[in-house]
Amino acid sequence: MAPLEPTQPDCVWRNVAGAGKAECKIWQFPTRVSRCTDATNVTGFTWALTQTWQPPEGQVYKLNFDAAIFANLLASVVGVIIRNDRGQVMAALSLKGGVVQDSDEAEVVACWKALEFAIDAGFSDLIVEGDNATVMKSIASGQTDLSRLGNIYDDIHCLARGLRYMEFNSICRSANGVAHSLARYAKHLDEDIVWLEDSPPPALEALLAVSRLRLNEELEFTEL
């Protein structure tokens, strides 16, 4: 088993009925599965190094996003997928973004684009997941960011405050395969592509992989 590394802290920023604030402890050296419970003890946040994608509970939707930078492109690419509590695709997006300086900027811009897309599509109860721990920790803190990306972080928080329910979670890359597939597909696009209540063909293999993993986990749990 590979040693644990303190590079993927837990983070969650919650917005309930517009009262957004950060409610989380950061575990720099987690156990195989670490748990973070907010101060009001309403819900908990779990993150595992070997995490697979898990559906949201109830009437909340889960949005996963990812960004990538290709050396031969003067632009970043973004992939977004929104699924319900049954794992069904409600909306998806592949787009080619603008020029960015590094991966952190690409991820922050991707989160901003993902939230705009979700709001335009009519979603108001969201769990947003990304696999860049540094970016997600900054977003989840809810604090003013004084870096060159501060204005984008502010825009993300402004969008989040307009939603009825909002969480920002940091996850492992293994739980973000569908969004990653959509981001890579955007490399070949000249214009944005949106899918509504339909599984995007560029991510079918990744979606099937998620379904197989979840089925195997359910079978293992049943055997126990």
Score class of each variant (00 low, 15 high):
I139F: 03
L219C: 11
A91M: 04
R164V: 10
A2N: 09
E217F: 07
W27H: 12
Y185T: 00
G97P: 11
W47R: 03
L215F: 14
T46W: 02
T134N: 04
T40V: 14
E167P: 01
L95G: 07
E23R: 14
E223P: 01
F70V: 04
D155A: 14
S199R: 08
Y165N: 12
F65D: 04
A179P: 02
K137I: 01
D145N: 13
F168L: 02
A71V: 06
L93Y: 03
E197L: 07
A17H: 15
P55E: 02
A133T: 05
G87L: 06
D120R: 11
L219S: 07
A114E: 01
V210Y: 03
T144E: 13
V33T: 02
N151Q: 07
D190F: 09
L149P: 10
E105S: 10
D10Q: 12
P9S: 07
I171L: 00
L196W: 13
A179E: 00
L126C: 00
A160R: 10
P201V: 12
L126T: 00
V100K: 08
D190S: 09
R184F: 06
P55Q: 08
L219D: 11
D38A: 11
D155E: 14
L204M: 14
S199P: 09
V210F: 02
L196F: 11
L207M: 15
A110H: 07
L93A: 05
E217H: 08
L49R: 07
Q59F: 10
H157D: 05
I127Q: 02
G97M: 05
R212E: 14
F117M: 01
E223G: 03
L215T: 14
R161V: 09
L74V: 09
R86M: 10
S170Y: 02
Q59P: 02
I139D: 03
D198P: 04
V42N: 15
L207E: 13
D10R: 05
I139N: 01
V89R: 05
T40C: 12
G142T: 11
L196M: 15
M136Q: 01
K62P: 00
Y61G: 00
D104M: 08
V80N: 04
T134C: 03
D85E: 09
W13P: 02
V135C: 04
A160I: 10
N84M: 01
E23W: 12
P200Y: 07
T222P: 04
V109C: 09
A71M: 10
S199K: 13
N151Y: 12
A110G: 09
R212K: 15
S174T: 00
S124T: 12
R173T: 01
I69S: 09
G162W: 12
E191V: 09
A17C: 12
W27M: 10
R214M: 08
P56G: 03
S211N: 12
Q101M: 08
N216C: 12
L224E: 15
K25S: 14
K21D: 15
V89L: 07
A206M: 06
